[in-house]
C-alpha cells in the first residue's frame, strides 16, 4: 500500500498473444489527423500543444494502447516489487527499476498466470535478473513453472543459459484456492479455463482488492463456474480481465481457444459488484481505434444493462496507472 493505505496498479504490457508495434503508416495517420485538427490554432509552445492534445483529441488520436505483452505491477508502497506475469512489458519495467533504483539490491515477486510464451518472454530481457544482489521470486501453480523459464533461456532459443543469471531466483509453487500473505498482500490464486490451465490472482492490500484474471475462458452456461468467478471478483476495486475476443467469436469460431470477451467480463463484474472492469490482453490485430471503440461499446453496454450499481470501464494501455 501507499503511505495513505492505497494500492496502485501500473500496466507495463497489455497486449495478448504476441507483442505488436505501431507501424510508420499508423504514426503518420495519427500525425496527419492531429495536424489537420490543429490547423489555424495557436500552438507555439509545448504546453499549448500538450493542452491541445489533451482537450481536442481522443485517446486513439493522441496515444497508443501499446504493444508489449502481459505485465502488470501492483504498487504497494513497500520496498518489494510485485508483478503479475513477465511478458515483454517486464523488459521495460526492469529498465525503469535500473534507472530509478540502481542495478542491485531489489526484491521482486512475480505471480504467473501461466507459462505461455507471451507471459514469460520478457524474462530473458529483464535486466535485474543479470545482477547479483537482486532477489526474484516467481510464484505460480503450474508444476512445470521453473522448467518453462529455464527452457526459454536454453539453446537454441537464447544465448545466455538460465544458470548464468546472477540474481537469486526462486520458484514458489502455490496452491489454488489457498490464501497467502506475500509482500504485504493477501493473495489467492484460482484455476481458470485455458489450454494447459491458467490461474487468476485476487490481491488484497488494506481494504483494496485487485483481481488479475487473464487468459481465461468462461462458459456462460456453466452456472457453477460463473458463480465461482463472481465470488472471486466479489466487491473488487479493480478487475483486470482478458477481453481479447468478441462474445460472438468466443462462442463460435474461437470457442475453446481460452479467451473471453468484454461482454462476459462486464456480466461477471456486475454479478460480483466489482467497481471497475479493466479490459486487458488486447487482440494483436486490433489497432488503437478498434480498442478505443471496444472501450466505448463496453461503456455503452454497461449503461444499458446497469441495475443499481455502476461499473467503471477502462481499457488498459502500456504505461497506464490506476490509484485505487
Amino acid at each position: 500500500m501507499q503511505p495513505d493505505g492505497r494500492l496502485k496498479v501500473k500496466f507495463w504490457g497489455t497486449r495478448g498473444s504476441i507483442p505488436v508495434a505501431m507501424t510508420s503508416a499508423e504514426v503518420r495517420r495519427k500525425l496527419i489527423s492531429a495536424l489537420t485538427r490543429a490547423s489555424g490554432r495557436k500552438l507555439e509552445t509545448p504546453d499549448q500543444a500538450a493542452a491541445f492534445l489533451d482537450r481536442e483529441l481522443d485517446f486513439a488520436g493522441s496515444h497508443t494502447f501499446g504493444g508489449n505483452s502481459s505485465c502488470v505491477e501492483i504498487i504497494t508502497g513497500q520496498r518489494d516489487y510485485v508483478l503479475c506475469d513477465l511478458g515483454s512489458g517486464a523488459r521495460v519495467f526492469g529498465n525503469e527499476v535500473l534507472t530509478t533504483r540502481g542495478p542491485s539490491g531489489q526484491r521482486f515477486h512475480a505471480f504467473m498466470s501461466h507459462t505461455h510464451w507471451d507471459h514469460i518472454m520478457g524474462f530473458p530481457f529483464f535486466m535485474p535478473a543479470y545482477a547479483a544482489g537482486n532477489h526474484i521470486r516467481i510464484y505460480g501453480c503450474h508444476a512445470d513453472l521453473e522448467e518453462a523459464f529455464r527452457g526459454q533461456h536454453a539453446a537454441p532459443s537464447f544465448p545466455v543459459d538460465f544458470s548464468r543469471l546472477s540474481a537469486t531466483i526462486e520458484f514458489v509453487r502455490l496452491e489454488p484456492e489457498r490464501e497467502y500473505e506475500i509482500a504485504g498482500l493477501r493473495v489467492r490464486p484460482k484455476l481458470q479455463r485455458h489450454g494447459g490451465d491458467s490461474y487468476g490472482y485476487r490481491f488484497q492490500g488494506g481494504d483494496k482488492v485487485v483481481v488479475y484474471s487473464t487468459d481465461a475462458e468462461h462458459k456462460q452456461d456453466d452456472l457453477t463456474e460463473i458463480k465461482a468467478f463472481a465470488e472471486f471478483f466479489r466487491d473488487a476495486d479493480l478487475v483486470i480481465f482478458d477481453s481479447q475476443y468478441s462474445l460472438a467469436e468466443a462462442t463460435s469460431i474461437k470457442e475453446d481457444w481460452g479467451h473471453s470477451s468484454n461482454v462476459v467480463g462486464l456480466e461477471l463484474c456486475q454479478m460480483a459488484h466489482a467497481k471497475c472492469l479493466c479490459l486487458y490482453h488486447h487482440e494483436p490485430v486490433s489497432d488503437d481505434e478498434r480498442i478505443a471503440a471496444l472501450l466505448a461499446e463496453t461503456r455503452r453496454l454497461e449503461e444499458i444493462t446497469r441495475s443499481d450499481r455502476r461499473v467503471e470501464i477502462l481499457a488498459a494501455y502500456d504505461g497506464m496507472e490506476i490509484a485505487l
Binding site: 468478441s246 462474445l247 460472438a248 461499446e297 455503452r300 453496454l301 444499458i304 444493462t305
Partner: peptide, 15 residues
C-alpha cells in the same frame, strides 16, 4: 433498440 445494441456490441449481428 437496447437488444439490438447488445447484438451489435457482442458482434452477434455478424454471425
Amino acid at each position: 433498440p437496447a437488444v439490438r445494441e447488445i447484438f451489435d456490441i457482442s458482434r452477434f449481428t455478424m454471425v
